[in-house]
Design a protein around this nucleic acid. Structure first.
Lengths: 213, 213, 213, 213
DNA sequence: AATGAATGAGGGTTCATTCAT
DNA sequence: CATGAATGAACCCTCATTCAT
């Protein structure tokens, strides 16, 4: 009826997507600042500049925005973690590891609100979102574990209880991220990555002084 | 003056303490399962088998039970973390470290509900309790950092960015605890401690194959 | 810009005002019947025919409705009490007094629930509203006192302890209002006003029989 | 069994009465300070220095203490208000009136907590106590009215609408009491009584200047 | 008689969600 | 699509009253 500019549905869809993004952005802020429970719809819609009812046009629940935020984050993170491919014509394993670290850290530091959410997963008691974050983390841990196993097999790494070590390594990464989120003058992403990789590979011992008991 | 049958006041005090403990136990469970916010007084008192008003005879607020739980935990943990004393006539640093680990891990694994709480701190942005847990963690990190610095000075440890590494190490410990809380067949506390210490000291590299780039 | 059907914003505002009035009316009733403390929000909203949450859309606190009711009343009363202006071209002081009385009495008798509230001020020791009513009453007493003083100065009134007399006169007015609120067949407002004014001016003595002792 | 000192029952009764009085005294304070509703049993028993249960050994309800306090007050007041007996060999009516005033005022000023309660009657929404105070006041008003009627009949007082005037006069008395409760430097009881009686009898007009309209 | 721990109905308030406009 | 007034379940907490000791 009205003049259909090229792809009318597209336009509508795009506008809808924009609105959605606008809400998600506001939600991310509010959740990061206040935590899931203290973040009220009122605050959220005020920050997004929309009406109460409008929110429910785009999301069914409060939980759904939260889940949606996390989902996107997990997808993005996933994209940035590439399996370490060991072969000729490949950069060294260390270089690939380093690249992974840097990509992930860069992403996280660029969206601190989101990172806050990821670090405090478990604060969403029932949503299944916590479970999903947990599952993602488990996935990463599994990936680390597999890498460990492969490294051991190839003789690149020493033997170890791969599950424990994988969990510990993942924890170490998270600890470092937490540090970089809170510290006043944070080191550069590269510096942090190097420090972490060296730690993981060689530990902190000055080896000549430590003899296995 | 007259001989009082076995300390009547004592009995009352003991009863009161029992009730308190009963409430705290129930609260720990509920908080661990649901998180601070979703844990309702209704659920709590039902689980404790007491009436609504009774709860407020022992605690002023919902927050107060929570804080009380955390405080006790922090005190207990603090007791179990002894500074590593390096001197003649002392067990080796490694042995002291190991003993610390084992004490802490044992305590945490014995009270899993509490450990759940500690791991998910940050879920109570208003109670001040989260801040306290955070402060405790910071304290531990500082202690690690100081130990690192001392080790480096004595030539026992290699040079490193002590803040980053301390945060990472703390994360590693936490990661391991998380693992031990969730895994089906968990390794023994001793095994876990050994694995972690070795990891921290020497890393995972099979050193002959890694050359610094 | 386009011709808006009769002021859409106006309509919304008017609706809001109506709701508000509806709540205030119910609140007035409930407060008058039960007093501030025993008046529960439950009773109030039931009487107003609204949902629990709706109440808090219009008022922040229980206290706020109460205060709001009193404030309006005090403003209205204030409007009806005009200073007695003695000058040429003015109605006689008695006539001005009489007019004041009649205006106030008429207002009070028209809204008996509200009058009940005003008479029983002091029943809300915490709201600050009681204080406000008290302050208003004090203001009226002061006005009476000032009028007395002026009257004495002009030789219109006999000398007296103006503070005591002002308080007593205010009490007399209040006593009369109470009477008119409770009596079955109340006299007309005019009759009451005349009676009160005569009492105030000349007392009840048949003067020929009373000699000062 | 135990040695019965003279009138054992008497002793018990006396002790019981003492306890009761102790509670009533504390209650009077608390009610006067906080008002009926905000006065908690906790505060009351603390002030009385007794245990929670003990209170309910002497009174069935919170309301009952309150009623008991008011009852005693009304009885005491009643004792102090004597009918004005006009006859030969009697002090003048004015003197009798004056004596009544002085007795009542003295009593009220001696127990200000209680007076506060009486002035704020109506704050006990359901106890029947409010009704009882109201009834007492009505009784006093009736007495005033009867005195008025008799005075008119005897030609001592001018004709008037006795109900209105009685209510107003009662209000005047109450107003004066309120004044004396709050003012910083209150006049003596005698001065107040004289002022009030003169006001009631002759009003405030300087009669030569007022001509009935 | 005295105690005070225990009770639970009821209070005010919040906030995710719905729906008529 | 967008709005925001309306909803009511659920929350934390208080306090008069009871009852085993």
């Amino acid at each position: 009826m009205t003049q259909n500019s090229p792809e009318p549905e597209d336009r509508a869809t795009k506008q809808r997507d924009n609105r959605r993004r606008q809400i998600v952005a506001a939600a991310k802020e509010v959740f990061a600042e206040l935590g899931y429970h203290k973040a009220s719809i009122s605050e959220l819609i005020q920050r997004a500049g929309i009406a109460r009812g409008t929110f429910y046009l785009y999301f069914e629940h409060k939980r759904q925005v939260f889940d949606s935020i996390l989902n996107e984050a997990l997808v993005e993170l996933d994209k940035r973690i590439l399996p370490v491919d060991i072969g000729p014509d490949q950069p060294s394993a260390r270089a690939q590891l380093r690249a992974n670290f840097i990509r992930v850290l860069t992403y996280l530091l660029e969206d601190q609100a989101l990172t806050q959410l990821l670090l405090n997963h478990g604060l969403t008691p029932d949503s299944g979102a916590a479970d999903r974050v947990g599952a993602f983390y488990q996935g990463v841990i599994m990936m680390i574990r597999a890498s460990l196993a492969e490294g051991v097999e190839r003789g690149l790494l020493r033997k170890c209880h791969s599950e424990i070590v994988a969990s510990a390594l993942f924890g170490a990464i998270r600890g470092m991220v937490e540090y970089m989120m809170s510290a006043d003058k944070t080191p550069s992403v590269e510096e942090a990555a190097d420090e972490l990789i060296y730690l993981v590979l060689h530990g902190v011992a000055n080896s000549e002084h430590w003899i296995d008991e």
